[in-house]
Amino acid sequence: MSPVSRILRSATYLGLGLAALISVFPFYWMLVSMTNSAVEVANGKLTFGDQLIANFQSLLTEVDMVRVLFNSTVITLFGTILTVALSSAAGYGFEIFRSRFKDHLFSLLLLMLSIPFGAMMIPLFVMFAKAGLLNSFAAILLPGIASIFIVFYFRQATKAFPHELRDAARIDGLNELQIFLRIYLPVMRSTYAAATVIVFMANWNAYLWPLIVLQTNDMKTITLVVSSLVSAYNPNYGVVSVAAVIATLPTCLVFFILQRSFVEGLTGGVK
């Protein structure tokens, strides 16, 4: 390796290392802040302290964490399963089955992606109020389970799904549902993994819509709790950081578990 390319490579690694450091720093600071007092956090202390247990206890005193985590878990679990199931079936259908209208319909759906949620929020709220579903998990789950983005994502991924497999399955006597469940689903597992990570994160971190439709303390989710902790006149940043770590861990965990498949899924892997 020539000295020039060696210098270039070193500079590349240095740049990448720096970028990695900058990306990881907020996470590090959150972990450090979790172990420090409010005053220490405000003063910018960057080393680990001894306030972790005190902060944790304060959080448990202020917030019914069991209830809050239960709410977030239920919303995320059901939201993820329903969204991935429904949207993958729709994406599969859009790609596999023939119809004169499907491309027009699909374009219309894609067009809907450009409508900001803020514009739909009030009509949606009125709809759910009329249906008597305010302050229920259904109100959180129903608007999101037919995700146009995930339908689009599955349709694109299905383009790589070998038609020969489907034809072979048909010859073997499988019906359409069986082909979807027994052939398509296992083959597309990387796509499912990537979609699961995306939908899981969206559900776990959902903020505006749950804020609007959930109305009582016993229905609060973790994101709403973190938000109200920060809003105090004299926020205890140590306690806020503990809540933030708890709010972040599940998404990290899911990502790390499905990381390999996630990358394969995004790069269009079909096995």
């Binding site: 929020m121 009030i122 709220f125 009125v126 109020a129 305010l134 302050n135 505006l208 804020l211 609007i212 109305q215 009582t216 303390n217 709403l224 938000s227 109200s228 920060v230 809003s231």
Partner: peptide, 25 residues
């Protein structure tokens, strides 16, 4: 019954409900 919200969240909720005309909740 006390319901604790972030200040900005409280305002968002209040404005959404006023704008929608729905008084439930």
């Amino acid at each position: 019954t006390l319901v604790d919200l972030a200040k900005a969240d409280l305002e968002t909720k209040l404005q959404t409900q006023f704008a929608s005309g729905v008084t439930d909740g």
